[in-house]
Amino acid sequence: MTVWRGSQPLILASKSPARQALLANAGIAFEVIPADIDERAVELAAGLSTPGEVAALLAREKAVSVSSRYPDRFVVGADQTLALDSRWFSKPAGRRDAAGQLQALAGRTHELHSAVAVARDGEILFSDLAIARMTMRPLDDAAISAYLDAAGPTVTASVGAYQLEALGVHLFERIDGDHFTILGLPLLPLLKFLRSRHLLVV
Rank of each mutant, 00 (worst) to 15 (best):
I131H: 05
F89N: 03
R5G: 01
P51N: 10
P92G: 13
A106V: 00
I175W: 09
R120P: 01
A119S: 05
L125E: 14
E53N: 04
K192Q: 15
N25C: 13
D121F: 11
L185N: 00
L129P: 13
D121C: 03
K91L: 12
S49R: 13
L112I: 05
A63H: 07
I182K: 00
P186Q: 10
S16T: 10
S14I: 10
D121V: 09
P17K: 02
S16F: 07
R96N: 14
I33K: 02
D178P: 04
P189F: 00
L12D: 07
D140N: 15
A56N: 13
L48T: 07
L164E: 13
L44E: 15
R195V: 00
W88M: 15
G177I: 07
A106P: 00
T50K: 07
R195Q: 13
F193P: 03
T135P: 09
V169N: 03
G77R: 04
S68K: 14
D149N: 10
R95A: 14
F89V: 01
G6W: 02
A161E: 00
D72G: 09
R108K: 15
A117D: 04
S16K: 00
F126V: 02
G177T: 03
A99W: 01
L23S: 01
G122Q: 04
A151T: 11
A151I: 08
D128K: 01
L125Q: 12
I33Y: 09
S16L: 05
H170T: 15
I28L: 10
T2F: 09
V118K: 12
G77S: 01
V3Y: 09
A35H: 02
T156A: 06
S158R: 07
L188T: 10
T154C: 04
L10G: 08
A35T: 02
L188E: 12
R69A: 15
G184M: 04
A41L: 14
L139A: 09
Q163G: 12
P153D: 11
Q8M: 01
R73E: 09
D176C: 01
M134R: 08
I175P: 06
T135A: 05
M136E: 11
G52I: 07
G100A: 04
V169H: 09
S145C: 10
A56W: 05
G168V: 02
D72R: 10
E111M: 04
W4T: 12
A41Q: 15
G122I: 01
L44V: 14
